[in-house]
Simulated assay, not measured.
Amino acid sequence: MMQPSKTVRGVLIAVIALALVAATVVGVRTVQHALYWADPAHRNVTPEAWMTLGYLERSHHLPRHSLGPALGLAPQPGVPRSLEEIAEQRGEPVSALLTEVTALIKAQKK
C-alpha cells in the first residue's frame, strides 16, 4: 500500500484541524444561544425601545417575521432595526410603537 507524501499528509491534517475548529465554534455558539433563550429572564419580555422585532418574536415564541407585517412593515434584509429606529422612521413616538407592539404580541398569543 502506498503512503501519502508528507505534503498531502500535512494538508489533510490542516483540513481536519480546521474542520474541528469550525465544529467547535458552531457547537459553542449553539450552546450559548440555547442557554440564553432558556433563561426565564429572556422569555416573554416587555418590549423596550432597544429591542428588535426578531428578539421579541423569539422571546414570546411567535412565528418568525410575524410582527413586521402586522405593523405594516415590508421585510428589509440586512441589519435588524430596533423599535426606536422603526418609530423614528414612522415619525411616531417610541411609546406609541411600544404600546402597539405589546398589543400585537398579546393578540398573537391568543
Rank of each mutant, 00 (worst) to 15 (best):
M2N: 13
S5K: 07
S5M: 06
K6C: 02
V8M: 03
V11I: 12
L12I: 09
V15N: 06
V15M: 06
V15Q: 02
I16R: 10
L18R: 06
A19I: 08
L20R: 10
V21M: 00
A23E: 06
V26Q: 08
V28Q: 09
V31E: 02
V31Q: 08
Q32H: 13
H33M: 00
A34G: 09
L35S: 05
Y36S: 00
Y36A: 03
D39A: 00
P40W: 08
R43D: 01
N44M: 12
T46Y: 03
T46H: 06
E48R: 14
M51D: 03
T52E: 01
L53K: 00
G54P: 07
Y55C: 03
Y55T: 11
L56C: 05
E57H: 05
R58C: 07
P63N: 02
S66A: 12
L71T: 03
G72P: 04
P75Y: 14
P77G: 13
G78T: 02
E85I: 13
E85K: 11
I86V: 15
A87Y: 04
E88N: 14
Q89S: 14
Q89C: 02
E92C: 08
V94I: 06
V94P: 13
S95L: 12
A96K: 12
T99R: 10
V101N: 00
T102Q: 10
T102C: 07
A107Y: 05
K110M: 08
